[in-house]
Design a protein around this nucleic acid. Structure first.
Lengths: 233, 233
DNA sequence: CGCTGCGTTGAGCTTCTTCAACGATCGTGG
DNA sequence: CCACGATCGTTGAAGAAGCTCAACGCAGCG
């Protein structure tokens, strides 16, 4: 088997959840129509309203997808790392990107053109199923974010975030923030000043111990109560 | 052609966007596995966390899908009328419903079992495409709601809502609220008291004229500016 | 060394919610 | 028919949460 650049790329694709169940040939077909791009840190990938001629997969680096308010405030919708797709919505509905995307670090991206992808999709039920699962998961997360923004206060959102991060680490008591606190504020729907104050408050209350990007969970119960939206503290 | 109850139902299904492109036989197959339910006004359809054995289509009546906060406050995610599906997310990801659903009026519902539907899906690429479009549209709307909740104030959300309703009526200057103001408050992520005050304020500013459920748009420009998030009364 | 990005803290203010009271409407049962 | 309760909507006063603006410390890096 030859291992040219396209074949190599196909191998990467075959390993992604999105393409699970596709034959090597089909992955090769995807790789053949895809185009690679790269972006320096801080560069825009697309803007809200841009025509969506295809969707993206992160090969290297990290990407944020976000909404921009009139005053410049950002609300992060997704944070993406290697292997994760974004921008699919524009392929299936509306044809324009519903939000902005920007490289958080130097990025290598794969662009998959709309038309070719839709053709493949019509022939590959398993691909459609994978996509449905992926979009459904995203809807679930959006629903959670809406709940957080509308029904919880900032301390509750932060508590929920910390517990979630801890769970993803197998329940470790120390959570390491992999993003700047400014970005975390945008994820939680607030601003850096407020986040800073809330972190200080939770520390004073003995729920957590914060040391730079390292946060130790001291009172899981208490955090869970906050995250649940209870009225305390 | 016989027109038994199932055949009739199949005809209804064939007319829905979700089943566009499916043959009459396939719609009949869907109708055959589906089950009808009805609910009185105010009754729960499912609760968040319930196992999702299938998804729903509204045949008659109206349904709200919503998140519930710890203090009882509700955030509406969707309002659904005849022909519209809901609860699909549980079919494709996570297996449990991500929110609550309740009948706003007496309802007739169609329940489509998960397994049978997924089988059909594997054989019908066009059905999968329809679903992808539907979920994508919903993601787009969720993204908009997140933007509204996080980046706009209540007057801006209300202005955006009114302009949207007007657009859906071909740009008519008079918008008729088809839902109670209490429910509208839940849609906009606020409470009835606040909505009432904001309506009064916009009226005083001459942007709208409110008369019960009838709202006349007096200053489209001004509303658009508010909806864009600009800083002005 | 000085610059820039990030984070923290304080003071003041805006927005929104909470709590309470009250008016209007509507359907029901006496 | 009227009275009653329930739902819905409105308004006022007070308080809480979060944002704005400003200043400052700190680290990394040219």
């Amino acid at each position: 088997m030859r291992t040219g650049p396209e074949s190599e790329l196909a191998g990467v694709l075959a390993g992604l959840p999105l393409f699970a169940g596709l034959s090597r040939e089909e992955c090769q077909a995807v790789a053949a129509v895809a185009r690679q791009e790269s972006r320096p840190r801080g560069a825009a990938i697309f803007a809200e309203g841009d025509p969506g001629h295809g969707f993206y997969i992160v090969l290297e680096g990290r990407v944020k997808v976000f909404k921009l308010g009139a005053d410049g405030k950002e609300q992060v919708l997704h944070l993406l790392g290697p292997g994760e797709p974004f921008g699919e919505v524009a392929v299936f509905a509306g044809r324009s990107f519903p939000a902005h995307a920007e490289a958080l670090s130097r990025c290598r991206l794969l662009v998959i053109p709309r038309a070719a992808f839709r053709e493949l999709l019509a022939r590959q039920p398993s691909l459609a199923l994978n996509l449905l699962a992926s979009l459904s998961l995203r809807l679930r997360r959006f629903a959670q974010l809406i709940e957080d923004l509308s029904l919880k206060e900032v301390p509750g959102r932060l508590a929920a975030y910390l517990l979630m991060e801890s769970d993803q680490n197998g329940g470790a008591d120390v959570v390491r923030l992999e993003i700047t606190k400014g970005l975390l504020a945008s994820v939680l729907g607030t601003i850096p000043e407020t986040l800073s104050r809330i972190l200080a408050r939770l520390s004073r209350s003995g729920l957590i111990a914060a040391d730079g990007p390292l946060i130790r969970i001291l009172d899981r119960e208490g955090l869970a109560e906050l995250a649940g939206g209870e009225r305390r503290l």
